[in-house]
Protein backbone atom coordinates (compact mmCIF):
# COMPACT_ATOMS: atom_id res chain seq x y z
CA UNK A 1 0.00 0.00 0.00
CA UNK A 2 2.61 2.45 1.10
CA UNK A 3 4.68 1.69 -1.92
CA UNK A 4 1.79 2.20 -4.30
CA UNK A 5 1.15 5.66 -2.91
CA UNK A 6 4.83 6.54 -3.12
CA UNK A 7 5.00 5.50 -6.76
CA UNK A 8 2.01 7.62 -7.80
CA UNK A 9 3.52 10.55 -5.97
CA UNK A 10 6.81 10.37 -7.82
CA UNK A 11 5.14 9.94 -11.18
CA UNK A 12 3.01 13.05 -10.71
CA UNK A 13 6.11 14.90 -9.59
CA UNK A 14 7.91 13.87 -12.72
CA UNK A 15 4.99 14.93 -14.85
CA UNK A 16 4.69 18.35 -13.25
CA UNK A 17 8.47 18.70 -13.49
CA UNK A 18 8.30 18.06 -17.19
CA UNK A 19 5.58 20.64 -17.79
CA UNK A 20 7.58 23.14 -15.75
CA UNK A 21 10.43 22.57 -18.14
CA UNK A 22 8.19 23.38 -21.08
CA UNK A 23 8.14 27.11 -20.28
CA UNK A 24 9.03 29.37 -23.13
CA UNK A 25 12.81 29.65 -23.10
CA UNK A 26 13.09 32.01 -26.04
CA UNK A 27 13.18 35.22 -23.96
CA UNK A 28 16.07 33.77 -22.01
CA UNK A 29 17.97 32.91 -25.15
CA UNK A 30 17.24 36.22 -26.82
CA UNK A 31 20.18 38.30 -25.57
CA UNK A 32 22.64 35.71 -26.80
CA UNK A 33 20.81 35.30 -30.08
CA UNK A 34 20.75 39.04 -30.69
CA UNK A 35 24.45 39.35 -29.95
CA UNK A 36 25.21 36.51 -32.32
CA UNK A 37 23.09 38.16 -35.02
CA UNK A 38 24.93 41.46 -34.66
CA UNK A 39 28.32 39.80 -34.65
CA UNK A 40 28.07 37.28 -37.43
CA UNK A 41 24.84 37.38 -39.37
CA UNK A 42 24.88 41.12 -40.11
CA UNK A 43 28.36 41.07 -41.68
CA UNK A 44 27.31 38.01 -43.63
CA UNK A 45 24.20 39.75 -44.93
CA UNK A 46 26.28 42.79 -45.73
CA UNK A 47 28.72 40.61 -47.69
CA UNK A 48 25.92 38.95 -49.60
CA UNK A 49 24.52 42.38 -50.38
CA UNK A 50 27.89 43.70 -51.68
CA UNK A 51 28.35 40.58 -53.78
CA UNK A 52 25.49 41.73 -55.99
CA UNK A 53 26.98 45.19 -56.53
CA UNK A 54 29.60 46.62 -58.79
CA UNK A 55 31.51 48.14 -55.88
CA UNK A 56 35.10 49.20 -56.50
CA UNK A 57 36.76 51.51 -54.00
CA UNK A 58 38.49 53.40 -56.81
CA UNK A 59 35.27 54.05 -58.73
CA UNK A 60 32.46 54.80 -56.33
CA UNK A 61 29.50 54.74 -56.01
CA UNK A 62 28.42 51.13 -55.79
CA UNK A 63 25.65 50.03 -58.13
CA UNK A 64 23.56 46.89 -58.26
CA UNK A 65 24.71 44.63 -61.07
CA UNK A 66 22.69 41.43 -60.58
CA UNK A 67 24.66 38.18 -60.59
CA UNK A 68 27.46 39.60 -62.70
CA UNK A 69 30.09 39.20 -59.96
CA UNK A 70 29.17 35.54 -59.67
CA UNK A 71 29.27 35.04 -63.41
CA UNK A 72 32.77 36.46 -63.57
CA UNK A 73 33.78 34.42 -60.53
CA UNK A 74 32.74 31.10 -62.01
CA UNK A 75 34.04 31.77 -65.49
CA UNK A 76 37.39 32.99 -64.19
CA UNK A 77 39.97 30.20 -64.36
CA UNK A 78 41.88 31.66 -61.39
CA UNK A 79 38.93 30.82 -59.09
CA UNK A 80 39.24 27.15 -59.93
CA UNK A 81 43.02 27.25 -59.55
CA UNK A 82 42.57 28.83 -56.13
CA UNK A 83 40.12 26.09 -55.10
CA UNK A 84 42.55 23.44 -56.27
CA UNK A 85 45.35 25.14 -54.31
CA UNK A 86 43.21 25.26 -51.17
CA UNK A 87 42.41 21.58 -51.51
CA UNK A 88 46.08 20.66 -52.03
CA UNK A 89 47.14 22.76 -49.04
CA UNK A 90 44.47 21.34 -46.69
CA UNK A 91 44.88 17.73 -47.75
CA UNK A 92 48.68 17.95 -47.78
CA UNK A 93 48.91 19.35 -44.28
CA UNK A 94 46.22 16.98 -42.98
CA UNK A 95 48.03 13.95 -44.37
CA UNK A 96 51.34 15.11 -42.91
CA UNK A 97 49.91 15.90 -39.50
CA UNK A 98 47.93 12.68 -39.17
CA UNK A 99 50.79 10.44 -40.30
CA UNK A 100 53.67 12.20 -38.57
CA UNK A 101 51.52 13.22 -35.60
CA UNK A 102 50.65 9.56 -34.99
CA UNK A 103 54.25 8.41 -35.40
CA UNK A 104 55.68 11.08 -33.13
CA UNK A 105 52.96 10.50 -30.53
CA UNK A 106 53.72 6.77 -30.55
CA UNK A 107 57.42 7.50 -30.07
CA UNK A 108 56.87 10.04 -27.32
CA UNK A 109 54.53 7.67 -25.52
CA UNK A 110 57.46 5.35 -24.80
CA UNK A 111 59.52 5.61 -21.68
CA UNK A 112 62.96 7.08 -22.29
CA UNK A 113 65.26 9.47 -20.43
CA UNK A 114 64.47 13.11 -21.15
CA UNK A 115 60.97 12.24 -22.29
CA UNK A 116 59.36 15.35 -20.84
CA UNK A 117 61.80 17.68 -22.56
CA UNK A 118 61.37 15.81 -25.85
CA UNK A 119 57.61 16.18 -25.52
CA UNK A 120 57.87 19.88 -24.84
CA UNK A 121 60.15 20.41 -27.84
CA UNK A 122 57.87 18.38 -30.08
CA UNK A 123 54.86 20.47 -29.13
CA UNK A 124 56.67 23.84 -29.15
CA UNK A 125 56.24 24.81 -32.85
CA UNK A 126 52.51 25.03 -32.30
CA UNK A 127 53.04 28.01 -30.05
CA UNK A 128 54.99 29.95 -32.68
CA UNK A 129 52.85 32.50 -34.52
CA UNK A 130 52.32 31.78 -38.21
CA UNK A 131 54.16 34.85 -39.57
CA UNK A 132 57.13 34.12 -37.30
CA UNK A 133 57.14 30.49 -38.39
CA UNK A 134 57.03 31.62 -41.99
CA UNK A 135 59.98 33.98 -41.51
CA UNK A 136 62.04 31.33 -39.74
CA UNK A 137 61.51 28.97 -42.64
CA UNK A 138 61.99 31.60 -45.29
CA UNK A 139 65.22 33.07 -43.96
CA UNK A 140 66.86 30.36 -41.85
CA UNK A 141 65.85 27.10 -43.47
CA UNK A 142 64.76 27.39 -47.08
CA UNK A 143 66.90 30.33 -48.24
CA UNK A 144 69.12 29.04 -51.07
CA UNK A 145 72.14 31.04 -49.93
CA UNK A 146 72.00 31.14 -46.14
CA UNK A 147 69.43 28.44 -45.36
CA UNK A 148 70.01 25.12 -43.62
CA UNK A 149 68.40 23.09 -46.41
CA UNK A 150 70.68 24.65 -49.00
CA UNK A 151 73.71 23.94 -46.83
CA UNK A 152 72.71 20.28 -46.58
CA UNK A 153 72.24 20.04 -50.31
CA UNK A 154 75.69 21.49 -50.99
CA UNK A 155 77.11 18.99 -48.49
CA UNK A 156 75.58 16.26 -50.61
CA UNK A 157 77.05 17.83 -53.74
CA UNK A 158 73.72 19.11 -55.03
CA UNK A 159 72.75 22.58 -56.13
CA UNK A 160 70.71 24.40 -53.52
CA UNK A 161 67.31 25.23 -54.92
CA UNK A 162 65.16 28.29 -54.44
CA UNK A 163 62.34 26.53 -52.69
CA UNK A 164 59.70 29.22 -53.04
CA UNK A 165 60.08 29.42 -56.79
CA UNK A 166 60.77 25.75 -57.65
CA UNK A 167 58.35 24.07 -55.25
CA UNK A 168 56.19 26.86 -53.86
CA UNK A 169 53.18 24.80 -52.79
CA UNK A 170 55.37 22.11 -51.23
CA UNK A 171 57.18 24.81 -49.24
CA UNK A 172 53.93 26.28 -47.94
CA UNK A 173 52.62 22.81 -47.05
CA UNK A 174 55.89 22.10 -45.21
CA UNK A 175 55.64 25.27 -43.15
CA UNK A 176 52.01 24.68 -42.22
CA UNK A 177 52.77 21.04 -41.42
CA UNK A 178 55.60 22.14 -39.15
CA UNK A 179 53.06 24.17 -37.21
CA UNK A 180 50.20 21.65 -37.21
CA UNK A 181 51.97 18.31 -36.73
CA UNK A 182 52.66 19.32 -33.09
CA UNK A 183 48.96 19.99 -32.59
CA UNK A 184 48.09 16.51 -33.87
CA UNK A 185 50.90 15.06 -31.75
CA UNK A 186 49.55 16.75 -28.64
CA UNK A 187 46.02 15.45 -29.13
CA UNK A 188 47.08 11.95 -30.12
CA UNK A 189 49.60 11.66 -27.31
CA UNK A 190 46.92 12.51 -24.76
CA UNK A 191 44.67 9.93 -26.39
CA UNK A 192 47.41 7.30 -26.22
CA UNK A 193 47.87 7.97 -22.54
CA UNK A 194 44.18 7.37 -21.94
CA UNK A 195 44.39 3.92 -23.51
CA UNK A 196 43.40 1.44 -20.82
CA UNK A 197 46.44 -0.53 -19.61
CA UNK A 198 44.26 -3.55 -18.88
CA UNK A 199 43.28 -3.58 -22.54
CA UNK A 200 46.92 -3.56 -23.58
CA UNK A 201 47.66 -6.38 -21.17
CA UNK A 202 44.69 -8.38 -22.42
CA UNK A 203 46.12 -7.91 -25.91
CA UNK A 204 49.45 -9.16 -24.62
CA UNK A 205 47.79 -12.27 -23.24
CA UNK A 206 45.98 -12.69 -26.57
CA UNK A 207 49.31 -12.60 -28.37
CA UNK A 208 48.94 -9.25 -30.16
CA UNK A 209 52.43 -7.81 -30.49
CA UNK A 210 54.14 -5.06 -32.46
CA UNK A 211 52.27 -4.23 -35.62
CA UNK A 212 49.19 -6.33 -34.75
CA UNK A 213 48.85 -4.45 -31.50
CA UNK A 214 49.10 -1.15 -33.37
CA UNK A 215 46.68 -2.24 -36.04
CA UNK A 216 43.97 -3.82 -33.86
CA UNK A 217 44.21 -2.04 -30.52
CA UNK A 218 46.02 1.29 -30.74
CA UNK A 219 44.86 2.68 -34.08
CA UNK A 220 41.16 1.91 -33.49
CA UNK A 221 41.53 3.75 -30.21
CA UNK A 222 43.08 6.72 -32.05
CA UNK A 223 40.35 6.87 -34.70
CA UNK A 224 38.23 9.32 -32.78
CA UNK A 225 41.01 11.77 -31.85
CA UNK A 226 42.30 11.58 -35.42
CA UNK A 227 38.91 12.58 -36.77
CA UNK A 228 38.85 15.47 -34.32
CA UNK A 229 42.31 16.55 -35.50
CA UNK A 230 41.08 16.42 -39.10
CA UNK A 231 38.02 18.51 -38.34
CA UNK A 232 39.81 21.19 -36.34
CA UNK A 233 42.77 21.47 -38.69
CA UNK A 234 40.54 21.68 -41.78
CA UNK A 235 38.71 24.63 -40.29
CA UNK A 236 41.94 26.47 -39.55
CA UNK A 237 43.70 25.53 -42.78
CA UNK A 238 40.83 26.66 -45.00
CA UNK A 239 41.40 30.18 -43.71
CA UNK A 240 45.22 29.91 -43.78
CA UNK A 241 46.69 33.20 -44.87
CA UNK A 242 49.67 34.49 -42.90
CA UNK A 243 52.33 32.08 -44.14
CA UNK A 244 51.37 32.59 -47.77
CA UNK A 245 51.38 36.35 -47.32
CA UNK A 246 54.79 36.29 -45.64
CA UNK A 247 56.54 33.92 -48.02
CA UNK A 248 55.14 33.67 -51.55
CA UNK A 249 52.43 36.32 -51.80
CA UNK A 250 50.34 33.72 -53.57
CA UNK A 251 52.95 33.27 -56.27
CA UNK A 252 54.86 32.63 -58.30
CA UNK A 253 51.98 33.37 -60.63
CA UNK A 254 49.00 31.84 -58.87
CA UNK A 255 50.86 28.73 -57.67
CA UNK A 256 50.05 29.33 -54.02
CA UNK A 257 46.94 31.49 -54.31
CA UNK A 258 44.31 29.75 -52.21
CA UNK A 259 40.68 30.82 -52.12
CA UNK A 260 41.33 32.85 -48.99
CA UNK A 261 44.29 34.55 -50.59
CA UNK A 262 42.31 35.21 -53.78
CA UNK A 263 39.67 37.07 -51.78
CA UNK A 264 42.40 39.15 -50.19
CA UNK A 265 43.89 39.99 -53.59
CA UNK A 266 40.52 41.00 -55.01
CA UNK A 267 39.60 43.18 -52.07
CA UNK A 268 42.88 44.82 -51.14
CA UNK A 269 44.92 44.76 -54.33
CA UNK A 270 42.15 45.36 -56.83
CA UNK A 271 39.89 47.23 -54.38
CA UNK A 272 37.05 45.26 -55.91
CA UNK A 273 34.76 44.78 -52.91
CA UNK A 274 31.95 43.39 -55.05
CA UNK A 275 33.82 40.50 -56.60
CA UNK A 276 35.73 39.83 -53.35
CA UNK A 277 32.38 39.53 -51.59
CA UNK A 278 31.10 37.12 -54.23
CA UNK A 279 34.21 34.95 -53.77
CA UNK A 280 33.75 35.23 -50.01
CA UNK A 281 30.15 34.02 -50.18
CA UNK A 282 31.27 31.14 -52.36
CA UNK A 283 34.00 30.26 -49.85
CA UNK A 284 31.47 30.30 -47.02
CA UNK A 285 29.19 27.91 -48.92
CA UNK A 286 32.13 25.59 -49.65
CA UNK A 287 33.34 25.65 -46.06
CA UNK A 288 29.87 24.85 -44.76
CA UNK A 289 29.42 21.92 -47.10
CA UNK A 290 32.79 20.58 -45.98
CA UNK A 291 31.98 21.20 -42.32
CA UNK A 292 28.72 19.32 -42.72
CA UNK A 293 30.50 16.24 -44.00
CA UNK A 294 33.22 16.46 -41.37
CA UNK A 295 30.86 16.89 -38.47
CA UNK A 296 28.78 14.00 -39.71
CA UNK A 297 31.84 11.77 -39.97
CA UNK A 298 33.09 12.80 -36.56
CA UNK A 299 29.76 12.37 -34.83
CA UNK A 300 29.42 8.91 -36.36
CA UNK A 301 32.82 8.16 -34.88
CA UNK A 302 31.80 9.54 -31.53
CA UNK A 303 28.72 7.35 -31.43
CA UNK A 304 30.61 4.19 -32.30
Amino acid sequence: MDQGVAVTNTSTEVRSGRSARQVNTLPLLLPAVILLLLWSILPLLRTIFYSFENYNLMTPPAVFNGGLNYRYLFTDISTWIAIKNSVVLVLGVLAASVIFGTLIALLLNNDFPGRNIARLLAIAPFFVMSPVAALIWKNLLLDPVSGLFGWFMTLLGLHPIAWFSTAPMLSVVMIYSWRWIPFATLILLTALQSLDTDQLEAARMDGAKGFARLRYIVLPHLLRPISIVIMLESIFLLSAFAVIYTTTNGGPGDATTTLTYLIFIKALNDFSIGSASAAGVFAIVLANVLAMFLIRAVSRNLQA
Binding site: D198, Q199, E201, A202, A203, M205, G207, I217, P220
Partner: peptide, 20 residues
Protein backbone atom coordinates in the same frame (compact mmCIF):
# COMPACT_ATOMS: atom_id res chain seq x y z
CA UNK B 1 55.95 -14.75 -22.74
CA UNK B 2 52.33 -14.47 -21.54
CA UNK B 3 50.67 -15.61 -24.77
CA UNK B 4 52.81 -18.77 -24.86
CA UNK B 5 52.06 -19.96 -21.34
CA UNK B 6 48.68 -21.38 -22.28
CA UNK B 7 46.98 -19.46 -19.48
CA UNK B 8 44.07 -17.10 -20.00
CA UNK B 9 43.29 -14.18 -17.74
CA UNK B 10 40.01 -12.50 -16.91
CA UNK B 11 40.54 -8.95 -15.73
CA UNK B 12 38.62 -7.20 -12.98
CA UNK B 13 37.71 -4.41 -15.42
CA UNK B 14 36.97 -7.03 -18.12
CA UNK B 15 39.34 -5.17 -20.51
CA UNK B 16 37.14 -5.85 -23.53
CA UNK B 17 38.17 -4.19 -26.78
CA UNK B 18 35.54 -1.46 -27.20
CA UNK B 19 35.75 -1.17 -30.99
CA UNK B 20 35.24 -4.89 -31.62
Amino acid sequence: PPDKRGLAMVFQTYALYPHM
